[in-house]
Amino acid sequence: MGLVEKGVLGRKPLKPVTWLLNYSRKYSLWMFQWGLACCAIEMGAALASPRFDMMRLGVIPFPASPRQADLVVISGTVTDKMAPAIKRLYEQMPDPKYVISMGSCANCGGPYWDSYSVTKGVDQIIPVDIYIPGCPPRPEALLDAIVMLQERIQNEGIGNDELASRWRGEPVEVA
């Protein structure tokens, strides 16, 4: 609605308003699946398998394009040839956007740490909110990451000086 971006809510919005906005955001995460390697299959298992069933967490994994997505899961090895495409699709996502880096390869290069063609971590290209370790991480680990991300979203302030910067798409400092 642009309330946050325009600063209508002011410096300190009412707590219930913040809570409500964040609550509705965290349970309607549209997730763009960037399946790259082995981790993509575990991500697929987390999404499609009845054993894990990610949709019960309010994650909708079928955006038609990155322009409809709030969250992207980079699952797998990022190569130097792939990196420009990842950056470009990340830039197409609307703010506020979140990134989960799934698996060792996306975190740091993993078993290909010395390869000539693998990017040593997706955080060299785009900012990452949550890292999932593992090679590949189990689907449960991805579910846990989603829950962590939801917690983080719930606790985000949306006052002018807090999150509005993120909503306006200003770069995030990755700790």
Partner: peptide, 11 residues
């Protein structure tokens, strides 16, 4: 192809 080339034979 090559978007997933990890250089196995070299590694």
């Amino acid at each position: 192809i090559g978007y997933m080339h990890r250089g196995y034979e070299k590694l």
